[in-house]
C-alpha cells in the first residue's frame, strides 16, 4: 500500500509541477464570462445558463484532463526509462498501475474541487446580486420575501453536489479506460484518439444495444446483428451517466438512482483496471 501511495503522490506531484492547473484560469474565465453575459436574462434563466455552462465545462475539462494525463503516463515513463528504475525496485506491476491510476484520481479530485468552488462562488455572487436587485424592486414585506425565496430556489440546489460526483465517476471511468488502452498502445496519440472515439460511441451505444436486443432491426442481416452485438458488449454506456442534465434543469434525482450509477461506474473502473493489468503484466519492457 505504501508503494501505491508513493507512486500516486509522485504522479500528482509531477502533474502539479508541470503546471496542469493553469487550465483553471480558462475555467474561471468561462464562469465569469457566462455570468456576465447572462446578467441580461430573467433570473431563472440566468442561473440555469450559469449552471449549465459550469457543469458542462467541468465535464469537458475533467474528461480532457484525465484522458491526456493518463495517456501520457506509460509512454513517457518508458521513453524516459523511469519505468525501469521503478520496476527494478521491489514494486509489482499491479502496484505501479494502481499507483498511477490513484495519482490521476487525486489530480481529478483536486481539479474538480477547485472548479466546484469557483462555480459555487460565481453562483453565490450572482445570487446575491439578484437578491439585492429584487429587494430594491419589491421593498421590504411579504412580497419581497417571497421573491427572494424564489430567487434562492432557482439558484443553489443540493442536487448539484451529487451531479458533480457523477461527473467525477464518469471521468474516473474514462481514466481507467485510457490506462487500459495505454497498457498495450505504443503511442499516446493513439491512446487519446481511441479514448475520444470510445467516449463518443459510448453515448450512442444504447441505440445499438436496443436494436440488437429488439432482434428485428431495420437490417436483419447477420453481419449487422454481429456488429450491433459487438458494439453493445464492448463499448460502455455513457448515456446512463447523463443524469447530470436532469439536475441542471432542476429535476430531482432520487438517491437510489445515484447509487446505481456510482455502482456501475465502480464496476467499469474495476474491469478496465483488471484488463489493463493483464495487458501490462505481459508486456515486454
Amino acid at each position: 500500500m505504501s508503494r501505491i501511495t508513493a507512486i500516486a503522490s509522485n504522479t500528482l506531484l509531477e502533474l502539479v509541477r508541470q503546471k496542469v492547473f493553469y487550465f483553471m484560469l480558462l475555467f474561471a474565465a468561462i464562469a465569469i464570462g457566462v455570468a456576465f453575459v447572462a446578467s441580461g436574462m430573467p433570473f431563472a434563466e440566468q442561473f440555469q445558463v450559469l449552471k449549465d455552462a459550469a457543469l458542462g465545462a467541468t465535464s469537458i475539462f475533467s474528461f480532457l484532463l484525465v484522458t491526456l494525463a493518463t495517456a501520457m503516463i506509460l509512454p513517457k515513463e518508458i521513453e524516459d526509462r523511469t519505468l525501469y528504475t521503478v520496476l527494478a525496485k521491489p514494486v509489482s506491476r499491479l502496484e505501479y498501475l494502481l499507483g498511477k491510476l490513484l495519482g490521476v484520481y487525486l489530480l481529478l479530485f483536486v481539479a474538480m474541487l477547485l472548479m466546484s468552488v469557483l462555480f459555487f462562488v460565481a453562483l453565490f455572487a450572482r445570487e446575491q446580486l439578484v437578491i439585492a436587485a429584487t429587494l430594491k424592486d419589491y421593498g421590504p414585506g411579504p412580497d419581497g420575501e417571497a421573491a427572494v425565496a424564489a430567487v434562492k430556489a432557482a439558484a443553489f440546489n443540493w442536487n448539484l453536489v451529487p451531479a458533480i460526483l457523477i461527473i467525477f465517476t464518469k471521468s474516473a471511468v474514462c481514466a481507467a479506460l485510457t490506462l487500459m488502452l495505454s497498457s498495450f498502445a505504443t503511442s499516446w496519440i493513439f491512446t487519446v484518439m481511441i479514448s475520444v472515439v470510445i467516449y463518443i460511441i459510448g453515448h450512442v451505444q444504447p441505440i445499438a444495444r436496443e436494436a440488437w436486443l429488439a432482434q428485428s432491426g431495420v437490417n436483419p442481416s447477420s453481419v449487422m446483428k454481429l456488429f450491433l452485438g459487438f458494439t453493445s458488449l464492448v463499448f460502455p454506456d455513457f448515456q446512463l451517466f447523463n443524469i447530470v442534465d436532469e439536475i441542471v434543469v432542476g429535476n430531482a434525482v432520487p438517491g437510489w438512482m445515484f447509487g446505481q450509477v456510482f455502482a456501475l461506474g465502480l464496476g467499469y473502473v474495476f474491469i478496465y483496471t483488471l484488463v489493463g493489468y493483464i495487458f501490462f503484466s505481459n508486456r515486454e519492457l
Binding site: L13, E14, R17, Q18, R81, T82, Y84, T85, A88
Partner: peptide
C-alpha cells in the same frame, strides 16, 4: 539497478 543513461523524474 542503474539503467543506461538514466533519467529520473525531472521535476
Amino acid at each position: 539497478f542503474l539503467p543506461e543513461n538514466p533519467y529520473f523524474y525531472k521535476f
